[in-house]
Simulated assay, not measured.
Amino acid sequence: MDKNISILGCGWLGEPLAIKLIEQGCCIKGSTTSSFKLDEFKKLRITPFLISLEDLKETLFEFLRSDILIVALPSKNINGFKNLIKYIEQSSIKKVLFISATSVYKSNNLIVTEESDLYNNAALVEIEKLFKTNKKFKTTVIRFAGLFGYNRKPGNFFKNGRIIPNPEGFVNMIHQDDCVAILTKIIENNIWNEVFNACADSHPKRRDYYIKTKADIGKDAPVFEETEKNVFKIISNKKIKSALNYNFKYADLMAINYGDLDI
């Protein structure tokens, strides 16, 4: 495994990933936009950097002095990413792991694979393309489904009486632990120039899922927007399970107790 790794966006997902990689002997540089997190990073043995995609500076070159760059930013700032790539091209980075989302796929009421249709001209699709088509470095794109785990509980997703649409559609979710394990395995196995979906095995109906997740954390029963129109997509995880020989820790979404503080 490459030992020098920079994580751009050391937040909800990037920080636990950094901790895992440090446990495996890697030297990790992590970025944040919050100055109060710098001391926290030092305590975790993450070399801290204050970096904003909207205002990249020459100090970025020190952050990019690594073998691998993991991009874990929720931003859809196309120009910001174009500017970032210019810096990457002048750095020692040769491999990029770009964290994307399954929202790039159209909801076509079908099972969705990595070859399925994407939304035309969507910002995230364009950003993925910037990385995938660049010849100066190798990129693997990982498209995560809806993220949950620990302080991110699905029972809190629809607060203050918000009505939940499309109750007969299906959910596509993935736990933080599975995200971290998958990203680590991609690096361990040196799998580059690929695109992967990452999603739990099961896809319960939205109605069943949100009734359960709210009940598990003691919230009032959800209210649904009843409609005859049923729009959905079911994300296939077959490719990544095969490539990594990976079994999901949280494969069955309806078997989880979402009130458990450990998850």
Rank of each mutant, 00 (worst) to 15 (best):
K82S: 11
L60Y: 01
A101N: 14
F158Q: 11
Y150K: 15
F49G: 01
K29E: 03
G80Q: 07
Y105E: 03
G30H: 05
E115V: 04
L38R: 02
I68F: 05
F158N: 11
L84K: 00
I51H: 01
S35P: 04
V71Y: 03
G146T: 06
K136R: 11
I70L: 12
K95G: 02
L56I: 07
T32W: 02
K29L: 04
I78P: 06
Q90N: 12
E54W: 01
V96Q: 06
N151Q: 15
Q90E: 12
S91Q: 05
N79Y: 11
K29M: 04
F41P: 02
L56D: 01
K135R: 11
L60E: 01
P48I: 05
A123N: 13
G80F: 07
V112H: 03
K136H: 11
R143P: 08
S91E: 05
K76M: 13
G146P: 06
N120W: 03
N79Q: 15
N83L: 02
L44F: 04
L69W: 04
T59F: 00
L118V: 12
S103C: 07
D39Q: 13
L64H: 05
K129C: 10
S92D: 12
F36S: 13
T140W: 08
E58D: 14
K29Q: 15
T102K: 05
G146D: 07
I85N: 03
F61H: 12
T113D: 14
S34E: 09
L110K: 14
T102R: 05
R65S: 15
I88A: 00
L97N: 04
P74D: 12
T113Q: 08
K106G: 00
T33Q: 04
I78G: 07
F98C: 09
N77K: 10
E114V: 09
N108F: 00
L50D: 02
E126T: 10
T59L: 00
N151L: 12
F81S: 03
G80P: 08
K136G: 01
Y150C: 12
K95P: 02
F131R: 06
T113K: 10
K76W: 09
A72F: 05
I70D: 03
E89L: 00
F131H: 08
P48R: 06
F41W: 03
I51C: 01
L64S: 05
V112F: 01
T139F: 06
P154H: 11
K29V: 01
T102G: 06
Y87K: 01
Y119V: 08
N120Q: 14
S91M: 04
A72D: 15
F137M: 04
T102D: 05
N120T: 12
R45F: 12
F63E: 06
K138Q: 14
I99V: 15
C27W: 06
S35V: 13
S66L: 03
F137C: 05
G30S: 10
L110T: 13
L118M: 08
L73N: 05
K57Q: 13
T133I: 12
A72G: 14
E115T: 13
